[in-house]
Design a protein around this nucleic acid. Structure first.
Lengths: 354, 354
DNA sequence: CTATTCAACCCAAACGTTTGGGTTTCGTCC
DNA sequence: GGACGAAACCCAAACGTTTGGGTTGAATAG
């Protein structure tokens, strides 16, 4: 009995050539060359017969054989902290789309933001002979990028930037500034920032942009009001609790550099008896699909995640072609919702420090 | 000037063989055979020299060449509705982990739950010559699976099941029953179900399990209280609004077959002035990391998503080996939280139909 | 002392493409 | 009528492996 797994062998150039009584190289040129070369390789009549038969037999070139010969795999490797983070997952969707359009395949791997795992995953991708790499998880001060450069591996950064290397990111600084403008103009003067991981440029830049603008406006963000945190809900909750635990006057508004952290913080505030949007304003970042749909809709800065992914691919293609490419920062846009709508007047009315 | 993209050619078996003055086939056998074959291919001394040099030169086999020769790519294709759905993303993390452990790479693609796109993506994967497929987006009544069987493509289903084919899923029926038990025992008698897409076994089974158990307990779920919906927050909100718009007595509890739909529904209820957990109970499914962290923590059924992904890989490996494999349904577990804690007593006190 | 066996190798073909360079067979030009 | 050029092909090597089958030379059995 034949094992279920056995598949019928795919039709090859040789099969087509044999059936047509011509040489395999002619078939190859007809099917796989730019029209320039194809003309000159076979008569229009022969070319037609080749193409017809190829379609009829369902010919599809063997990518392994092609890669072996051409030394390029048309595969690109993507490394992200974790795909279960909707932000990275969405960027990856953009990557996949754009890659497919230029006939590339993508491998994704999760590094869990662990430096060793990053290296290991990059190694695996290179062992698979990917043509280039998109790194979505670069850490500040990571040596991986330098090594890749030394090894002449074409790569671009996505989501997080790293000075000196091409990256496709959101304009995080600008986004932070938008939040500062919004909170200032709605009357807040006492704010805190849930700043994310210190190794990630996203959180750092969003924080820096906020502080920069806040200072320009005449405000002040005390250093102890900037709390590093994990990027997930749990991290946001912890930071939120920490904020409430502090002595002294509590902030009337909190900027979390990430929607999930914002959601966690909202949970902490609510648990402490505060009504978000009235007693305390909360602003997030990324405008994930959840933000607008939350029980208390969350003000958030929209980052064009799909577009960030798409343009990372475009940039990588140019790097692979040997061009110099500049980093792109995609424009951010603020969406004000109930979580910060009522302004400081409402917020000020009753923050009970627990 | 050398283009940035040029990479130093990788070291090959031939290079190693030349440097050691032995034949390439000997090197190959030493490096890539089970110890059985390796013994007999070279002296222990030679084997050592080969291995040492390989390590020294950083040899890594060319997977394209290997695939060409062996006709297996050690790659598996994964198709999911969308990776930005955290449920599928998490399952994929499990897939990636397990695949890596058995030295397989994975390609993922999004089908957006579109039948044409499913086919297209599957074709792309097959053109890449993957050894097998994991389908996370099978639709009830889809013809794709039958075609794959006809073409002898090894595959397994994940997340959603399809009678007659091996699948790795959550015990959705059992999960639905858990919810029914919980709501019944907390005193609810008037319930509604936000049932998800009708083409997905997940929603269908969770609904069926709930109804089955509810009936056993003596309850009744009127047909018009079972609302199909999209799986995202937006879908949940729409269904929630629809529920409130209905005439007559409104339910005291709502079971949404998915956390995101539950969150959307919570938003709709809140917008109508209801306090979730007091005026109306809400239960979700999947226990995504968000559920416990929401402002009003959500009761949810935990499905072991990582494990579902991991075991899909194990099953696929056996299918690829030609074995018959049975479907696996992973056990579900209920986590009761504030959104449904107070029971029908609280819930009953004041549902104002808007 | 001759077979036989075994360890330790080598040989060469094959997987499916691509590609630099032929070789025919025409038609055309001078 | 010979040279030339182009059109339409063919040839063969190469990419890096794997693998069924040699070939040695020495040790052992009978």
């Amino acid at each position: 009995m034949e094992p279920t797994g056995r598949r019928r062998a795919a039709v090859t150039l040789k099969d087509l050539a044999a059936e047509l009584g011509i040489h395999v190289s002619t078939v190859s040129r007809v099917l796989h060359s730019e029209s320039e070369v194809a003309r000159g390789a076979a008569s229009t009549e022969t070319a037609r017969r080749v193409r017809d038969l190829a379609k009829l037999r369902g010919y599809s070139p063997d990518p392994q054989a092609t890669s072996l010969r051409t030394r390029r795999t048309r595969a690109i490797g993507v490394i992200v902290p974790r795909l279960s983070d909707i932000v990275l997952a969405t960027m990856y969707e953009g990557v996949e789309e754009a890659a497919a359009e230029s006939n590339h395949s993508t491998f994704v791997m999760n590094s869990h933001d662990d430096l060793d795992e990053q290296r290991r995953k990059a190694e695996i991708m290179l062992a698979r002979r990917v043509d280039g790499l998109i790194l979505g998880d670069v850490h500040a001060g990571s040596s991986l990028v330098d090594d890749l450069v030394k090894r002449h591996v074409p790569f671009v950064l996505m989501n997080r930037r790293y000075p000196g290397f091409p990256s496709s990111t959101c304009d995080d600084t600008g986004g932070g500034r938008l939040v500062a403008d919004h909170l200032w103009s709605t009357g807040h003067r006492s704010v805190a920032i849930i700043a994310g991981e210190t190794y990630a440029s996203t959180g750092v830049d969003r924080t820096a942009g906020f502080v920069e603008r806040w200072n320009e406006l005449g405000g002040d963000v005390p250093a102890d009001r900037i709390l590093p945190s994990r990027f997930d809900t749990e991290g946001g909750r912890q930071a939120g609790e920490e904020l409430l635990r502090r002595d002294g006057e509590a902030p009337t508004a909190v900027f979390a550099v990430n929607d999930f952290a914002a959601i966690g913080a909202m949970g902490a505030f609510r648990a402490a008896g505060l009504v978000v949007g009235q007693d305390i304003a909360v602003v997030g970042f990324n405008d994930t699909s959840l933000a607008a749909q939350l029980p208390i809709p969350l003000t958030s800065v929209r980052s064009p995640m799909l577009e960030i992914g798409r343009s990372a691919v475009g940039m990588l293609r140019r790097v692979m072609a040997g061009e110099d490419v500049a980093s792109v920062r995609h424009r951010a846009e603020l969406f004000v919702r109930e979580s910060s709508e009522s302004g400081a007047v409402g917020a000020r009315r009753g923050l009970r420090v627990g």
